[in-house]
């Protein structure tokens, strides 16, 4: 088992002045962010502000137009796909839409990273798959196809796949969106458990404030491509910045409502 270096204060992940645009749309506009080992950081913000884009930069699925991304003391935004492989093996990514492979069974999906990277025998892989499926509370569903399970189950299978290689960092892109409150809380507990038991460094993108307060050691708010707030969860309960209040309390302001009248 990995030894978590609790004394190590260097950030595990660091974004320095990262900018990204798609055509005319400036999605990230000079983002600075450091993530410490073993902590869970929650990224909140309205839909379409670039939260998923931010995550995809850290795992190298997107490249910044300018700025730098560092992982464990190594600059990674300039690495090619091949050199990113060892880094990506230390990360697990739970995609917003689960992104399970339709052509494989649930069990093959969860075992996929092991089949590709571990060199273990099929029987050993099956054993690990069963263990991960148990962790996400879906024992015995291995032989179903992704089409035969519910949306919430898909997310949990995707989580099992993301943690198949016991990653040090797990990215959760809207893990609770679209789930009922009970199922959502199961996911929250799972995130907490991974942190507690495996010292996983977590980055959770969400607009579910219940989840954000429950799992976050720290919350970062993204707005129009910039970080406008970065603090411990309690600060968000009391802060009086209107943009933060509006989001945290889930209240539409005059401008949002005017659009409604015109529309």
């Amino acid at each position: 088992m990995r030894v978590a270096k609790k004394t190590d204060n260097r950030p595990l992940i660091e974004l320095r002045n990262v900018s990204k645009r798609f055509g005319a749309l400036q999605v990230l506009d000079g983002v600075d962010l450091s993530l410490r080992r073993g902590e869970t950081t929650v990224v909140i913000g309205e839909s379409g502000t670039g939260k998923s884009v931010l995550l995809k930069h850290i795992i190298g699925l997107l490249r910044p137009d300018s700025g730098e991304i560092w992982f464990d003391g190594q600059r990674i935004d300039t690495l090619n796909e091949q050199s990113l492989v060892p880094i990506r093996r230390r990360m697990g990514f739970l995609f917003q839409m689960a992104a399970l492979f339709d052509s494989m069974t649930v069990g093959e999906n969860v075992g996929f990273p092991l089949t590709e990277h571990s060199g273990l025998k099929p029987a050993q892989i099956d054993e690990i798959v069963a263990e991960k499926m148990k962790m996400v509370g879906l024992t015995g569903l291995q032989d179903r196809t992704p089409g035969q399970i519910s949306g919430g189950q898909k997310k949990r299978v995707a989580l099992a796949r993301a943690i198949a290689l016991d990653p040090e960092v797990v990215f959760y892109d809207e893990p609770t969106t679209g789930l009922d409150p009970v199922r959502a809380d199961v996911i929250n507990e799972m995130i907490l458990k991974l942190k507690r038991e495996l010292q996983v460094t977590g980055i959770v993108v969400t607009h579910d404030m219940v989840s954000a307060f429950k799992v976050g050691d720290r919350i970062v708010m993204l707005n129009k491509g910039r970080i406008i707030a970065d603090a411990v969860p309690d600060w968000f309960r009391t802060c009086d910045d209107p943009r933060v209040r509006r989001f945290v309390d889930g209240r539409a302001d005059k401008e949002d409502l005017r659009a409604l009248e015109v529309g």
Partner: peptide
């Protein structure tokens, strides 16, 4: 995002 998922798994 299945293609992204492949890449994310190296």
């Amino acid at each position: 995002e299945q293609i992204d998922a492949l890449r994310s798994m190296g």
